[in-house]
Design a protein around this nucleic acid. Structure first.
Lengths: 231, 231
DNA sequence: CTCATATACGACCAACAGCCATATTATCGG
DNA sequence: CCGATAATATGGCTGTTGGTCGTATATGAG
């Protein structure tokens, strides 16, 4: 019972987000296998959380789906909650992209922030259960909360940069403190995801869309023109 | 060992919110004792949640603090999470008061909503740990979520009423759908509590204050005059 | 005083997160 | 090509905890 590893639940390493563990080449088979295993665990975990809801998934379910032993899980993640904090890193990457985009100056700030919100909403929007798990676990575990808190801070700083650019270009009311605006965007985003996760009726994207319009209305330098809605 | 009930941890039935179990008179000593016990359990639970955080409090901790047997807890609450859903009812009461106030017409709608937000923020604002527990448990437990969902819906309807009044009186942009505005207020509120609970630096009231200003800026019929900030 | 019922109780159970000693690899020096 | 060594995998084990159940006790009516 050693190499007959190819049994049930293959859990293909192809589908899903691709922004994690990007460097897979040039480092012995051992590390590659390790990275592969970690990735498989991560994906299976998210999948199961999305399907059944976080509390209804045991570590053993995850390891079984990933076809590894139970103890292996704890070689890669400090705890069950820890899996979720990994996603925060992925989200942060999307914000980072937005900063680059904003500084490139080829799109309006409205467009950049708008698109960023929708992109960040993609993952939690996969299922209300997943969204709940994300938020709930962030708040529940002390260890995870530390990481999340950092990520939020960092994200906020980056958003503030974008806001500053928006103010410089006359899209956003310059009297507003950029840090505050950034915080409010995060608040609006999280609040929207939170409320959506209770019902999950239309897609999260729809909710985010409306929330963002509301948000923009409060910070735009003028009531908004049809022209600049699609920068 | 029957009447020597007065041992440790008295857990006075005086302190805390008074909006729960209001009818204590005219119904045998039995029911009074029961209501008393339930209230004591409720208060001790919240207190402990606020101090140590929800996941670090066991049911036994609660019953011990309330000086009752473990099983007694489940005579009054379906589950540990259920304790928290009781608070939702209390919060709903505050919204209800706001509706009355709005329809009385003695204050501006700005003032009514503003005050309402701050009042609802009082309880979760007692401690970041409590706020986290509230949100986290709402999302985690299926049974509780149902109740919470109802409460949010009901609250939203009531807020929409208030918004309608605000539109009629020319305080709020009449082009906005009142249900949407209500939803957005809830979203902003929850998002604010959520983010605050990660740091808890200044009082929650401060955060809510700023969020509300932002919210109002987006729905007010004009940028807001100093005069109507203190209706 | 006695009986019926509502409530209190804590021993008990099942489930699960996380640990650890052991087995199984991959890597590399000889 | 082989044996030593370190990295990784494994699953049995344990402590904790939410929740249940049958029994004991307090209450109030007759």
């Amino acid at each position: 019972m050693n190499i007959s590893h190819t049994s049930h639940s293959p859990a293909s390493v192809e589908a899903g987000p691709s922004e994690d563990l990007p460097h897979l080449q040039g480092m012995g088979r051992r590390q590659r296998r390790a990275a592969e295993t970690r990735l498989r665990l991560f994906r299976c975990a998210l999948q199961l959380f999305a399907e059944r809801g976080f509390p209804n998934v045991t570590v053993e379910d995850i390891t079984e789906a990933a076809d590894v032993g139970k103890g292996t899980f704890f070689n890669y993640f400090e705890s069950k909650d820890h899996v979720l904090s990994v996603m925060a890193e992925i989200q942060l990457g999307k914000v980072r992209e937005a900063v680059t985009l904003a500084e490139a100056g080829k799109q309006t700030i409205y467009s950049v922030l708008h698109r960023m919100s929708l992109r960040v909403a993609e993952e939690p929007g996969r299922s209300p259960d997943l969204a709940r798990a994300l938020i709930s676990a962030f708040l529940a575990s002390k260890a995870v909360r530390g990481l999340i808190d950092c990520n939020f801070s960092e994200g906020r700083k980056m958003i503030a940069q974008i806001v500053a650019a928006g103010q410089k270009r006359g899209e956003i009311d310059p009297r507003l403190k950029k840090e505050k605006v950034a915080l409010q965007l995060q608040q609006a985003f999280m609040g929207t995801v939170l409320l959506w996760s209770l019902q999950g009726q239309p897609a999260l994207a729809t909710w985010i869309e409306e929330s963002f319009q509301h948000f923009w209305r409060a910070i735009a330098i003028r009531p908004r023109t049809a022209a600049e809605n699609k920068g």
